[in-house]
């Protein structure tokens, strides 16, 4: 029957109107964007100090000169992030689960988890980096490396796992009690309910705030510059101090942006896919 259907003249007319409205919205959006972006660009480029700023921050010669060293340094940031992130996710989730456990045997663990998140989140990350990178090697712990890179990474893991744990916990607590109830009704243990019912739903919900912490961690790998690790920022500072030109800082900023933006888009795409699959037709 639907094969025989032809849009009525009124419907055709309506489609034209809708197309016109869409075109108008696109035009409005484009003009608004042009005005805003153009306005900002004009304000910067026409400012009296712009030539001097351009020479000190946007010099193509210095950008090219500092690039190879910055690439090498940035690799350290990437490595640190890639090592720290999975550990943070696992540790954060473990702390969150420990905090929501009800088993009497796990009471000390729960207390520890609470103290850990409270204390660690209270200490500035930079301070943790100092404490770990300078303090821990002094302990002379057998079997552990005493390099600054290792201990700086540990500091980031410690700091961020506390934040990530709280994100996971809020996700776990946002799962409706009826989900716990129906898991219990199926005779699942609390651990099984967490593992198969609650945590999977919680994780889906906390993807956006987790991304926030990811991006933040990527940037905070630059904190290790303060303990003399030759990361991208340290390299840039080194170059800037020798050549009295700040262009390398801008180059480093571009590197960090280039790393965080694709991650943000990826997470958006993941969240959209989950939403499509699980909330199909819900209105």
């Amino acid at each position: 029957m639907s094969a025989l259907w032809e849009p009525s003249p009124r419907e055709r007319e309506r489609r034209q109107v809708r197309a016109r409205l869409t075109r108008r919205r696109v035009a409005q959006g484009s003009i608004a964007t042009l005005v805003v972006v153009g306005g900002i660009a004009a304000a910067v480029l026409l400012s009296p100090g712009w030539p001097r700023v351009r020479a000190t921050f946007f010099d193509s010669f210095h950008a090219r000169e500092s690039l190879p060293a910055i690439v090498d340094g940035f690799w350290i940031n990437v490595k640190m992030f890639l090592i720290a992130e999975p550990i943070i996710l696992v540790l954060g989730l473990a702390i969150a689960v420990a905090r929501s456990s009800r088993s009497p045997l796990l009471v000390p663990l729960r207390g520890l988890a609470i103290v850990y998140t409270d204390v660690v989140r209270g200490i500035p990350t930079l301070l943790l980096v100092f404490l770990f990178a300078f303090g821990m090697p002094e302990l002379g712990l057998a079997g552990l490396p005493d390099g600054a890179f290792f201990w700086a990474t540990v500091a980031l893991v410690v700091s961020y796992s506390a934040y990530v744990a709280e994100v996971f916990r809020s996700g776990i607590e946002s799962v409706h009690p009826s989900q716990w109830l129906s898991a219990e009704a199926l005779a699942l243990s609390r651990g099984q309910a967490l593992r198969h019912v609650v945590v999977p739903q919680a994780v889906r919900r906390v993807v956006p705030p987790l991304l926030n912490d990811f991006v933040s961690l990527q940037k905070d790998t630059a904190l290790v510059a303060s303990v003399s690790i030759f990361d991208a920022l340290f390299t840039a500072r080194d170059y800037a101090n020798y050549n009295f030109n700040y262009t390398p800082y801008v180059v480093v900023a571009c590197f960090f942006v280039a790393m965080t933006v694709p991650l943000a888009r990826l997470c958006d795409a993941l969240a959209a896919r989950i939403a499509r699959r699980e909330r199909a037709g819900a209105r």
Partner: peptide, 9 residues
Amino acid sequence: LLEQIDDGV
């Protein structure tokens, strides 16, 4: 008008 219609008035 919570749904966009495909034809009719």
